[in-house]
């Protein structure tokens, strides 16, 4: 039915994910009418999902190239500890704000250069290595949480605008605006610049990119650096929200980021996906957690459900590819 209607199928491919979000919200509202749509709960959802959204945006760029970055959770951990240590060392706050993104970019460069220069068979290997290295470094720097950061350093992750209509702590978090700004910037980069299109071309057919004169290795180094940059931003937001740097920050978060990207419709085979879909994927995971919490359902069920959703999302991608490939 859908295959007979390319217009409808294209619409569903682009915006179907938004429908899923709306349906989920309707179900959550039906089960918890009093709490779900309260300003407190909604601003909480936005606040909690800001840093996973940053990780997912970075992961998305890597997944477009049919790659993967397993290290983002550990890079987040390393960055958040570096932020906390720098802050405690009395570094002026404008510099502390730069620490997270810089640690992220540096880690990303290590991933990208290591993967391309050593000619490893798959980025899985390189980033599995840096997953362990970054986490080990994190614990070497500090095994205990470091809390009590400067106000300005906490600001991006903690500030909430009540706009005169919400009662604090409810309101629209600054981190939400930062995510939107990053998403718009990333969208522009991926869709309107030559390097963005080269990233998609590499995901579609690396050989085509190569013979078109694109320096594929160089672009891949940028891709992993961008992913690291977003992990560093995520660290800054988490540091602000929790007012601390802790060595176990981000453990397992790389898997949530991958899940969000895939649920959002990006293809694991590379070359496909949208920024809007990624944000929707993050929101779907966030709403699922929120809804199950509100309904007092065990977090173990959350894991089971998220696992099922990942499998279904990838299966949909497989079906889509099969439909797109001509016999």
């Amino acid at each position: 039915m859908i295959s007979n209607n390319p217009g409808l199928s294209r619409f569903l491919e682009s915006y179907g994910i938004i429908l899923v979000v709306i349906v989920m919200m309707a179900i959550l509202y039906a089960t918890q009418p009093a709490t779900f749509l309260s300003a407190g709960n909604l601003s909480n959802i936005l606040k909690q999902n800001a840093y996973p959204a940053m990780l997912a945006l970075g992961m998305f760029v890597v997944i477009i190239t049919a790659g993967i970055d397993l290290s983002v959770g550990s890079v987040l951990g390393l960055a958040i500890i570096c932020i906390a240590v720098a802050d405690k060392a009395g570094t002026p706050w404008p510099l502390v704000l730069l620490v997270g993104p810089l640690v992220g970019i540096a880690s990303g460069l290590v991933n990208g250069l290591g993967y391309t220069m050593l000619k490893l068979p798959h980025p899985f290997i390189m980033t599995l290595g840096t997953l362990n290295i970054a986490r080990g470094l994190t614990s070497l720097i500090s095994q205990a949480p470091i809390s009590g950061l400067q106000t300005e350093v906490r600001y991006p992750g903690q500030k909430v605008f009540d706009l005169g209509i919400f009662t604090p702590p409810a309101g629209i978090p600054l981190s939400f605006f930062l995510v939107i700004a990053c998403a718009v910037g990333l969208w522009f980069f991926l869709n309107r610049t030559n390097m963005g299109r080269h990233i998609f071309a590499i995901g579609g057919n690396p050989q085509a990119a190569r013979v078109s004169g694109i320096d594929v290795d160089r672009v891949l180094v940028y891709v992993y650096a961008i992913c690291g940059f977003f992990a560093g931003l995520a660290a800054l937001l988490l540091a602000g929200r929790t007012d601390s740097g802790f060595p176990l920050a981000g453990v397992g978060n790389e898997l949530d980021a991958i899940a969000a990207v895939i649920i959002g419709g990006a293809s694991f085979f590379g070359g496909r996906g949208t920024v809007l879909g990624v944000l929707a994927g993050v929101l779907i995971m966030g709403l699922l957690r929120n809804g199950l919490n509100l309904n007092n359902i065990s977090p173990f069920w959350q894991q089971i459900l998220i696992g099922l959703i990942i499998i279904i999302a990838v299966y949909i991608d497989v079906l889509r590819r099969r439909a797109a490939t001509r016999k």
Partner: peptide, 21 residues
Amino acid sequence: YQDFALAGNLPIYENIYLGRE
């Protein structure tokens, strides 16, 4: 090239100007 060396996910016009946008 014998295998065309095109990026299937990109539209025709982007393939034509790939690398020389």
